[in-house]
């Protein structure tokens, strides 16, 4: 078993954390991880924190997300140029969805029916109807689209483009762009928060998160990060997720091998937590007491106790873990 220890974490305190942290997972709660360079998924049992299944996928799986009832898993099989639809019980691929070329990341609309897919090589966002299995729209966006988000009311979809350095705002009614807002270099991930009134966009090379007011699309705040002993150039915010109360955002900082805990009201960074190498995306368990981060270079997942903000375990998964998704 591998453990990533913080500089001041002794084995004794870690052991205490392991025994004292009380989590009561629902039965069969699982975290699914996509392994980009192994063409597999690793399924982690939240109760035991062990990998219990490894499932083969198409080539280069990255974004993964479950349908609202968790009956199917959607997988961006980037190099197979398709979105695969998997039965999570059997691990069988039920069918493929037309996705446009090189699907990297996607988001499922609240209607549980439409996938908004970033086509990284084509500068396009593709909208697919998962029921008719047809492409509904293709929207020209900036170069290397990646980050995808949809507002809680379903009215706005966001694509961020890595080389164009923009968040593109899509009206989901017309499937047309209605705004394009600049952010710092290489935006990677986007999320709506605060009841859908705020949009957060991370910029990997810029080293920032830009917070937008959704009503006006105006920039409201910019969050910067500083990890002691690491040159600012290597502190690169990528994936992030909000806690259940939306009070805290956990932000993966890529090759700095840390995640940050950000106060979502004051936009101040409260903590940095050491995890595995090149931390990329993450997801919580059902009650959001545990956070699972994908560490691409070290090929593992760090489990962080949300209350104490301590890493409690590292779980070896496949090569280059990328996406994470909860299956309760």
């Amino acid at each position: 078993m591998l453990l990533h220890l913080g500089r001041n974490t002794s084995l004794a305190t870690l052991a205490t954390a392991l025994t004292l942290t009380a989590w009561a997972p629902a039965p069969a709660e699982e975290i699914w991880i996509s392994n980009e360079k192994e063409d597999t998924l690793s399924v982690i049992d939240v109760a035991t924190l062990e990998v219990i299944r490894t499932i083969e996928t198409g080539e280069r799986p990255r974004g993964i997300t479950f349908s609202k009832d968790y009956s199917v898993l959607y997988i961006c099989a980037s190099d197979s140029d398709t979105v695969q639809v998997m039965d999570p019980e059997t691990g069988r691929i039920l069918h493929d969805l037309p996705s446009g070329e090189d699907p990297e990341q996607f988001v499922l609309h609240p209607d549980d029916r439409h996938l908004y897919i970033a086509n990284e090589d084509d500068a396009i966002t593709t909208v697919v109807d998962t029921e008719t299995r047809k492409v509904v729209a293709q929207i020209d966006v900036g170069i290397e689209p990646e980050g995808m988000a949809v507002s809680p009311d379903g009215k706005i979809a966001i694509t961020t483009s890595e080389t164009t350095n923009m968040a593109h705002w899509i009206d989901t009614e017309t499937q047309m762009l209605f705004a394009n807002t600049l952010v710092d270099s290489r935006p990677r991930h986007a999320e709506f928060t605060a009841g859908g009134t705020e949009l957060w966009v991370s910029s990997e090379i810029g080293g920032t998160i830009t917070v937008f007011d959704v009503a006006t699309q105006a920039e409201k705040a910019k969050i910067e990060f500083e990890v002691q002993g690491i040159h600012p150039d290597r502190v690169q915010p990528v994936g992030f997720e909000f806690t259940g109360d939306e009070k805290t955002a956990f932000v993966a900082l890529g090759p700095s091998n840390h995640i940050a805990a950000v106060n979502a009201k004051t936009y101040e960074v409260e903590d940095y937590i050491l995890v595995g190498r090149r931390v990329w995306h993450m997801d919580f368990n059902t009650d959001k007491s545990l956070l699972f981060t994908t560490n691409g270079v070290s090929g593992d997942v760090t489990v962080v106790d949300v209350a104490s903000r301590e890493p409690v375990k590292t779980i070896k998964v496949g090569r280059f873990p990328w996406g994470a998704a909860l299956r309760p």
Binding site: G142, I143, T163, T164, N165, M166, H168, L177, N180
Partner: peptide, 8 residues
Amino acid sequence: DNATTGRF
């Protein structure tokens, strides 16, 4: 690359 950004 520039032109793609430029059109927005």
